[in-house]
Design a protein around this nucleic acid. Structure first.
Lengths: 231, 231
DNA sequence: CTGCCCGCTGAGACCTCCCTCAGGTAGCGG
DNA sequence: CCGCTACCTGAGGGAGGTCTCAGCGGGCAG
């Protein structure tokens, strides 16, 4: 997409209501929209390669969004794709990100959320900036979306929990003292009890464990905490 | 800043503790740091133009951060500047954004928040992307930071309130129906009472009014709501 | 082995945010 | 001027997030 040009968006969804809403909304935002209602049509249109981004519903008649994405990537079409899934549970069939998706939106979505994701995707594609991801083993942290995945399962974290994990992850394998964590997560001029770090480490462990990640956060007695294996 | 090179950061603060913390933290993130403790020194260093970004405290001995910024811009130095202010009230002396600042951080800040802002600033500078701002008269909406300012005063909004305002602002001057607002802010498949829009319009008006902005959100009886003057 | 200290965790207070409901108010048509 | 309807708003409940505190338990030094 060149600066100043209207982005070309392909919207693929089998529900006419959703198509219409997206069509109107995106046009009002200055984008050009083409719609498709089923997988084969989407594939045919997408193969022309003339789109800046594709909004792709997963539940499609004929050919699932996953298959469409797979075929596209197999053909070498690198157009950014935002997967739209009806419910959370739908994603676990395959890892969309590994298939080459550039983002997820979960229905029912608010239009502005989708728009923000779409803008970010277009911006990244235009400037060639990669996603700002931190990987620690099977743990993936998306710094832009502030989300965490473990083995393709979402790990829902509160803002504080997320920040703590991100700080631990930025130097995975090294020991961080509680004082450091207090400074970096809770802010500098902070006089609170040090126990709050222990409490949030506990919260983090519980949620990571619920996602299948045990033993990720280690205690180094007398020193602090450490994410993942030592360097 | 070229890809792969270590960003050069100038840190200006009169408190040795803050300087040390930022120095260590930013180095650990792979950046090269130069520190300065007062305005004249900062100005001298910054004039060399060899920095990718400047973290500039406002309260400085000798020469305030505002003056440093002003002088720099007057000299044609376009290095991105992140202003660091001790308290909220400090900002109202002048409009940092109009002076050419690229962002604000309010003390006491958590390091990760500052780091995120700094990364975003470096990224924008590297790619030439401008800030994603919406202006409606004296109202400024920062889509990236999801913050709102009215006449240089922060307007603190909850996420819902912010989203509602953003949606109204994206097509300021046009009337948006409650159904549209429900769809775009609350999500598509939503069966809730329409009254929630009225309630949140009320919240918005109260907070905008507290910031000095009265009459910004108009009711168009029987049709919907409208931000700012008709087109 | 024993005692101390560090870390862990359950309970709970407090706050903000989100939404609902019911009653009040104001504009507008007749 | 009356009444209807749309809109506004105060009150309140529920949920989640943040932080404190106190008591428990386990590792480690002596």
């Amino acid at each position: 997409m060149l600066a100043g040009m209207r982005p070309q968006i392909l919207v693929v969804d089998d529900e006419p209501g959703v198509r219409k809403a997206l069509d109107r909304g995106l046009r009002a935002e200055g984008m050009d929209v083409t719609v498709a209602a089923d997988g084969p049509t989407a594939l045919r249109l997408a193969r022309t390669g003339s789109f800046d981004a594709i909004l792709l519903d997963i539940m499609l008649p004929g050919l699932s969004g996953y298959r469409v994405l797979e075929e596209l990537r197999a053909d070498g079409i690198a157009t950014p794709v935002l997967l739209v899934s009806a419910k959370d549970g739908e994603v676990d069939q395959a890892d969309g990100l590994d298939l080459g998706a550039d983002g997820y939106v979960v229905k029912p979505f608010s239009f502005v959320v989708l728009l923000a994701q779409l803008r970010a995707t277009l911006r990244r594609a235009a400037t060639g900036t990669p996603r700002d991801l931190i990987r620690v083993g099977p743990l993936t942290i998306d710094r832009e979306a502030r989300t965490v995945r473990y083995d393709d399962a979402d790990v829902p974290l509160s803002p504080r929990e997320y920040t703590l994990l991100e700080v631990l992850a930025t130097r995975a394998g090294t020991v961080r003292t509680k004082q450091e964590l207090l400074n970096e997560v809770w802010g500098d001029e902070w006089a609170a009890t040090r126990n709050v770090v222990e409490v949030y480490i506990g919260y983090l462990r519980r949620k990571l464990s619920a996602a299948g990640a045990d033993g990720l956060v280690r205690t180094v007695r007398g020193h602090g905490y450490q994410l993942g294996d030592p360097l």
